[in-house]
Every structure is written in C-alpha cells, then in structure tokens.
Nucleic acid binder design. Structure first.
Lengths: 193, 193
DNA sequence: CCCCTTTGTTCGGTTTGACGAACACCAGTC
DNA sequence: GACTGGTGTTCGTCAAACCGAACAAAGGGG
C-alpha cells in the first residue's frame, strides 16, 4: 500500500472501516451484540461504541472480537475485498509453454479480493523451469501429483515425491525441475496484501 | 464457528507478537525509532513502549505505524509466516479420517482476507465419502493426482482421471468416491462470503 | 578536548478507551 | 394490562494509552 508515509491518512477512516467490518461479520455470524460482547469478554457498551464508528479500539479488544467471531484478525481491518467476480471459463488455458517440455495450465483464476490462481504444472526432465520473482507478497503452494521434482526457491529447493507439499515465497526466484518423466503437480499461487 | 467460544486467550501474546513485528519491520526498513515515530506522527515514547512489549496499542496507532513502515497492516499482527514449509505425503494434520479408507490432510490454512484451505485427499474404492454442505459461499476445486474418482455434487458428480480439474459448489452435499486404489488429489476449498 | 546531533530510554500530565449500571425499546407470555 | 427476556443504547468512573519533555549513551566534527 502507500509506500509513501505519514502525511496523508484519514485516521477515522480506519475506525469507520472497523465499524463496518464488525457489523458485517457479526451479522454474518448471526449473533447479537450482547452475545458477541459476552463471548469476547468485553463490555457491550464498548462494542456498541465500536460498531457506531466512535472509538479507536485497542488491539486486544479487536483481537478478542476477531476470535469470538471466528474470523482472522485482518478481516476486521482490511478493506472489504471487492467482489469482482470475473471468473473466466479458463479451463484448459495454457499459460506458459515456452519450453516444449513445460506447460502450465490455468485451472482457476482467483475470485474476490486476493489474487489466487490454480495451475497444473507438468514438466519433463532436462528442462528446468526457472521462474522470475512475481509480485511482492506472492506465495506459492505446490503439491506433487506424479513423478519427482526439485522445487522451491533457487537457493533452497526441495525434492518432492508424489503427495508431498511445499510452500515457498513466490517473490524470489524459484525453480520447478522435473527429475522423472511424467512429472506433474498442482500449484496454487496467491498474492496477499 | 458458532460452536464453543473463544473467550480465553493470552492477550499479552498479541502484544508480544506486535512488539516483535515492530522491531523486525523497523530493522528491515532501516529507520531509527525516532524517525519512525516522527513519520508515523506518534510520540517516540509510545513507540518505545510498544517495541518493549508493554502496552496495548490502538488500531490508529498501529495503522499509522504500518503506513509509515510501508507494510500491510496484517504484517504487524499476524505471526511471521515461515518461509518454506514441506509436508511429506503421510505427514501433516489429518482433518478427516472417519472412514479408514479416506483421509484429508490440511496442507495450508487460509491467510488473512479470504478463507481458503488446501487439502490433500486420498481414498480407496468402496468407501464413498459423502461430505455435508459447508458454509454458504464455499467453492471447492479439485485436481486429481492419481487413480480415478467420481467427485462433485451428489446429483451431478464427474469422473476424473489424473490431471483433470473440477470445480463445484461446496455448500451443497458433495461426494468423493475413489474408483481405483491409490487415488489421491489436491483440493482447494475457498469461502467467499 | 568540547560541542552537537542522534540514539533510545524513563518520567508527570492529559486524553480516552473500556467497564458496569442504568436506560429505553421491542416481542412474547401470563 | 403487567411481566419477563431479549435487543442495543447512553451515562459516570477508572485505568491506561498517548503525549511531551527531560533523560543518559553513543557516535561525529571542529
């Protein structure tokens, strides 16, 4: 976000955001204000003020609410993910095929808020696929389906057998190098923040 | 989520987490405490206390710090994500094993923002796994790694071969029925509210 | 050497967030 | 009607988060 600094920021903006998030999440959970306050162990007056947009809660208070609501903390502070439901029928769309022995097929393009894509990777030995760093904050999950592969950050790759799972940062150079014929796997690339 | 409650939690845990995150991020940014406090527009005494692990900052304070540091808010509250994680086939948290011939291993639990989990499913023939509907808005993606499977909504399942991908709503009853021994696959369950 | 800047720390004072009780309101129930 | 059980709200009071200044330590010039 704003890599700039302090100068321009609306403080009450955050408060309003939290107020909205609280109302939304509480409605979703289907609990009353009183009940939620009781579960979170905070005074209901406090919660009332917060949902009204007044106040500037401490992290402990917010944390307790997040726990009681059963939602991750950031859901209460991050702006409501826009639901731009633009899922293309992308099945079978081959994204990369630079080398003949390597193919990445996009199975699903990410829905609301976060960028999240699902690919099927297949590769053959002898043509290591070196991927350039993606956007900062990208994380990749890989589950090997068949064959054997050396995958992960270039400086710390991991050898995987079928069924093995690895997660590694996608914003550093990483590799996918098949060690056996018929190697393929499932990759989930997600971009947080 | 409605089940149980969440009252009891170590509050200072959060504080300590934030303290560590602040020190870490400030070191990464290479700015002094004084300078950071100035940029964030808060008193350096406040920042000093926070980094010392004392105190319980308000969201506005934390927000200002996050902005001044140029990092997303969640980076200050979420535990530092391990960089590379490997879960070998057979390892990991087995979530369901009701029937002996069916196992679901949680590989990755969803990060802030969206709920999304990654599982490895393995099953043997003869014991169809019938899943109850999940939370409304849940979508499941499945890529078969090996074997053969009949998967999808109970009223409209699809037979998959290795490499095949299917996406179906998770908020209706759905099935995962192995047709061959050694069947396993990767499932991404995501919940868009 | 002294001076001056910057480091991060520890003090009083003020602002304010969190609490608990009392409040008004509505829906069933007797 | 009055009465219970629930909703969410608005009040004093107290603890504490935040501030600003004064503080000891550690470099960098002149």
């Amino acid at each position: 976000m704003g890599s700039g600094q302090g100068a321009g920021r609306a403080p009450s903006d955050v408060v309003g955001l939290i107020a909205a998030a609280l109302r939304r999440e509480r409605a979703r959970a289907g609990v009353s204000l009183t009940e939620l306050a009781r579960r979170a162990g905070i005074a209901k007056s406090t919660l009332s003020q917060l949902e009204a947009g007044a106040g500037n809660p401490s992290v402990e208070t917010l944390w307790a609410l997040a726990v009681a609501l059963g939602v991750p903390f950031s859901r209460l502070v991050d702006p409501p993910a826009h639901r731009v439901e633009v899922i293309r029928a992308g099945e079978g769309l081959i994204v990369y095929s630079e080398q003949s022995a390597y193919t990445a097929t996009m199975l699903s393009s990410g829905p609301p808020g976060t960028r999240r894509d699902i690919y099927r990777l297949s590769s053959e030995p002898g043509t290591p696929r070196l991927a350039q760093p993606h956007m900062a904050g990208t994380v990749e999950h890989l589950v090997l389906s068949a064959g054997r592969v050396l995958a992960g950050p270039v400086d710390n790759p991991v050898e995987l057998a079928p069924g093995d799972y690895v997660r590694y940062p996608g914003d550093v150079p990483h590799v996918f190098r098949a060690l056996e014929p018929g190697t393929f796997g499932v990759m989930v690339s997600e971009h947080v923040s």
